[in-house]
Amino acid sequence: MKKDIILSGVGGQGILSIATVIGFAAIDSGLYMKQAEVHGMSQRGGDVQSHLRVSSNEIHSDLIPFGGADIILSIEPMESLRYLPYLSKEGWVITNSTPFDNIANYPDINAVKEEIKKIKNHILIDADDIAKNIGSPMSMNMVMVGAASDFLEIDFEKLEKGIRFIFGTKGEEVVKKNIEALYSGKEFSKKFRSR
């Protein structure tokens, strides 16, 4: 088993919480893992990405080769497109559809969505909306983990455990909401693929 995942978003949106949950689940499943992060200047509202690699065999490179990613998991739609050079031919783009508009020249969101729809394997999910609907707008990231969960080849229970591990100190209510977000994302993703 080997999954190479590009996580993308905007500095401050919290892509690292996604990396932490999937990473925890991977390690807990006895898999190898490497995860390259971006620190420093770009964290101030610039584009950020993380290379998350999970495998049953030892992993060499901290960076995913171009054309090698199985998944681009993006919490911002335009940012999902920035990393297309990394996507493999059969890879999936799973992206939030709510734009994070912090620049003067943000493109027309419909044009961005049209670009995403051109990708053979894609899932467009309004994770912000789903998170709001379950009464937990902060759980948008876990909706995205849920949306990708069927592609990870990691037991779903391990992801739940990861959420418990990360949000445990914040109380049972926060844990519950994030697990609900995880389920909602998974549910939506399944529906999207069968449409």
Binding site: M41, M78, L81, P85, L87
Partner: peptide, 13 residues
């Protein structure tokens, strides 16, 4: 692969 033209630069701020 090239990056679609619609993608704008997002510098830090």
């Amino acid at each position: 692969e090239s990056i679609p033209g619609v993608v704008a630069a997002r510098p830090p701020k």
